[in-house]
């Protein structure tokens, strides 16, 4: 169940680091913690904290003016690694609704969609241009309706997203309810498959 997504405007957190994996976004032991407060406390600890456990003031994720920034501009292959959806929840608890990068972990992308977070894939030079905006603390406006990101000096960066996925984000809501409404199609598929591939259906003995 996710909240509808339309336009997100605000500052962006610059995080020009490649291959930020989901272990780095949230360590595995915090998956056993109760509640999402732990995700806020421990999110990005490997990047935010110095070896002695103190906050690194040079890390954008620690800077007060970005504490509620709704956009993250990241390096390539953001969200690679483990399938943990907690990585997206760790973004959500900071109020991040949009992540912009040149490439993403594919499982992370699906987890974003499940939670009403928009992953935007752009060419590397475009990501670099938006990174400059983020570093200069100039806000960005991300419009899902118009499928573009706009800078304060009115430069536009178009992004692509399929109509089905876009509609899902715009309306929010519950995928399971949608699929269950199509129960007859699943029933029919399985009826046919039982005759066609009986070996799939006989393992539970």
């Amino acid at each position: 169940m996710s909240a509808p997504f339309t336009t997100v405007a605000g500052l962006a957190i610059p995080l020009p680091v490649a291959n930020v994996d989901t272990d780095t976004i949230i360590r595995i032991e915090h998956l056993l913690d109760n509640g999402r407060a732990a995700l806020r406390e421990h999110g990005f600890a490997a990047l935010r904290l110095r070896a002695d456990g103190s906050e690194d003031p040079a890390c954008a994720l620690n800077q007060a003016d970005l504490a509620h920034a709704p956009i993250l501009v990241a390096g390539r292959n953001f969200g690679c690694g483990s399938s943990r959806e907690h990585a997206v929840w760790a973004l959500e608890v900071r109020g991040i609704r949009v992540v912009i990068a040149a490439s993403f972990g594919d499982i992370f992308v699906n987890n974003c969609y499940q939670n009403g977070v928009l992953p935007v894939t752009l060419e590397a030079p475009q990501v670099d241009a938006l990174l400059e905006e983020a570093q200069a603390r100039r806000p960005l406006t991300v419009s899902l309706l118009e499928q573009r990101i706009t800078t304060t000096d009115q430069r536009h960066f178009a992004f692509s997203i399929g109509p089905w996925q876009r509609q899902r984000l715009l309306s929010g809501g519950d995928d399971i309810a949608l699929t269950l409404a199509d129960r007859a199609a699943i029933d029919a598929w399985q009826r046919h498959d039982r005759g066609h591939r009986p070996w799939i259906w006989s393992a539970h003995s």
Binding site: H86, I107, N110, N111, Q114, D175, R183, Q190
Partner: peptide, 14 residues
């Protein structure tokens, strides 16, 4: 591999 929400979707709908 899939995420938590997807697991529930598969459990409920296959």
């Amino acid at each position: 591999g899939i995420g938590s929400t997807e697991i529930v979707h598969v459990l409920a709908t296959q």
